[in-house]
Design a protein around this nucleic acid. Structure first.
Lengths: 200, 200
DNA sequence: TGTTACCGAGCGATCGCTCGGTAGGTTCTA
DNA sequence: TAGAACCTACCGAGCGATCGCTCGGTAACA
């Protein structure tokens, strides 16, 4: 871990959202019933509706907490990394890797259930994703402008980097293989290479 | 396009599978009803069951056609690229990019609906994905062994590369931005960098 | 006397799927 | 070569189960 951790060790999710998350991760949003969520939360069906207005609202809560934490952590990571572009880039990648490894289930669900979001919740979620993408793009472009990186296609590289990090939530399991710290070290190196870091 | 195309221009899908694909791409497997598929295919509900035993069978068909085409095209791409490791690597990446751009909807659905597959169909699909992943890993490792690549973590790099290519199916639209050929040229470069190609 | 935190029962809608057909073409006998 | 028999390719109607959600409560606490 090159930088101090900016992410919480647990996401601030209510017990119901946490139970729903476990269900969504296995069966997806449409494949999960309110009764399954209630059972996973140790409540009855009306017990769920005491806290949430609809099944959709639970998914919306999950997405907003996840993207809110990711974006604020990413901004803080960049802020606290100092002035050096490469440091800020590394800090952002480290934050992204930690998020997608530590919270693999939330990351996976909020990514794969984008299309299950309705109307304004969908619009807000897409805006948040775009914002996160812009943080990456801005750093890659700044790196290219200052000759820290030599990627001919900064925007595509930025997309590649976010795909690499999001991909982690698809396969990483903390109980086998690398620790999150080792994983992020490896991926900081990989993402630097992807941006064609001008090794000095 | 550096290599002759090894992928078909259309996937060999029945009209019903094609209609189901359109529905799944918008609403997901569990979010799509048989009635929607029937309507999209211009048939009645029993008309669907004349050709498929169940809704699940349609998804299975989609997954098997997609992975079958991808794997056989990938193997042919590598075969026909000659003996040079970098050529074989480039040919595989080009094939992956073409697949995920030209057939973005199938690629996206078969990837995001893995968890909707049941039993043996799931096992077969995961085996196919592992096989495809091994094609990438083998080439990155061979490249590292022969000093064509200098990635310290070939297996993680291979995963990064497949994440980059799969990611394309999430955002690429053929009617705006780069053509598939331009896109694959950009991504061959990006993936070479990700594997830390020893530029000569 | 509210308010919070729930639950048992069940409503109307919709789900995947099936039943019993029919229309039109092909094949098989007499 | 007529007609019976059999296919393939569907469809209208509807079955039983389950869906998201709600109603009218109750028990505990303020």
């Amino acid at each position: 871990m090159k930088f101090p951790r900016v992410l919480p060790h647990e996401l601030p999710l209510s017990p119901i959202s946490r139970a729903a998350l476990r269900c969504f991760a296995v069966n997806g949003y449409h494949g999960t019933t309110i009764r399954q969520i209630a059972s996973a939360a140790g409540l009855s069906v009306p017990g769920i509706y005491h806290y949430f207005g609809s099944k959709q609202d639970i998914l919306v809560d999950l997405c907003e907490v996840a993207m809110g934490e990711l974006i604020s952590a990413s901004e803080r990571a960049i802020d606290e990394a100092g002035v050096n572009v490469l440091d800020r880039f590394d800090a952002l990648v480290e934050c992204l890797v930690q998020f997608h490894a530590d919270f693999a289930d939330v990351a996976f669900v909020t990514f794969s259930e984008i299309r299950s979001l309705k109307d304004e919740a969908l619009v807000r979620h897409l805006a948040a994703r775009r914002r996160e993408q812009e943080l990456i793009t801005a750093l890659v472009e700044e790196g290219v402008e200052t000759s820290v990186f030599q990627a001919p296609d900064p925007r595509h590289v930025a997309r590649a980097i976010s795909s690499i990090c999001i991909g982690i939530s698809q396969w990483y399991r903390s109980d086998q293989g690398l620790s999150v710290d080792e994983l992020s070290e490896v991926h900081v190196r990989i993402c630097r290479d992807t941006a064609r870091w001008a090794r000095t």
